[in-house]
């Protein structure tokens, strides 16, 4: 029962597509900048879907006009952390939104082991289910 044969983590935009090329990433960032969203680069090694807050790579980038600067950061982050998930987030600060409007993964570890299913016995023979990423099996300092 493998609906996602590559075991690719599917989060955010474009995650069912093949990895985006640099030009495609630039085009997406350009769209975000056109809408005056603050774009930032984030990374994590824990792909659990409820892991919302990833670490920031560098400062969030305001007042940029051209995607080249952000692509530069993306590539710096990829080189520095090749075994981590890296995503680009565009935050909309407009009142009423105040939320990320775009978010897509731009780097994945070469090997994505996927998730383990945990079953939990509960009262009255009921079953609880949860998932744990294999990537987080080891303590934080020893991963990757």
């Amino acid at each position: 029962m493998m609906t996602n044969p590559g075991n690719k983590v599917t989060q955010g935009q474009f995650s069912f597509l093949p990895d985006l090329t640099d030009e495609q990433i630039s085009a997406q960032i350009k769209y975000a900048l056109k809408n005056h969203w603050a774009v930032s680069v984030e990374y994590t090694d824990d792909p659990h879907p409820r892991n919302t807050y990833w670490e920031m790579y560098g400062n969030p980038m305001f007042d940029l006009k051209d995607p080249a600067g952000i692509l530069l950061e993306v590539n710096n982050c990829r080189n520095a952390l090749p075994n981590m998930y890296v995503r680009v987030t565009a935050f909309d600060s407009t009142k009423g939104w105040e939320a990320p409007r775009m978010s897509f993964i731009v780097n994945r570890p070469p090997n994505e082991p996927g998730f383990r299913l945990l079953r939990q016995e509960r009262d009255g023979r009921s079953q609880g289910y949860s998932i744990v990423p294999y990537a987080t099996d080891r303590p934080e300092g020893e991963r990757s």
Partner: peptide, 14 residues
């Protein structure tokens, strides 16, 4: 370094 890089990133494309 971060300060200079930030300025450079802002100026990119211009």
């Amino acid at each position: 370094a971060p300060k200079t890089r930030e300025v450079i990133k802002r100026a990119m494309g211009g």
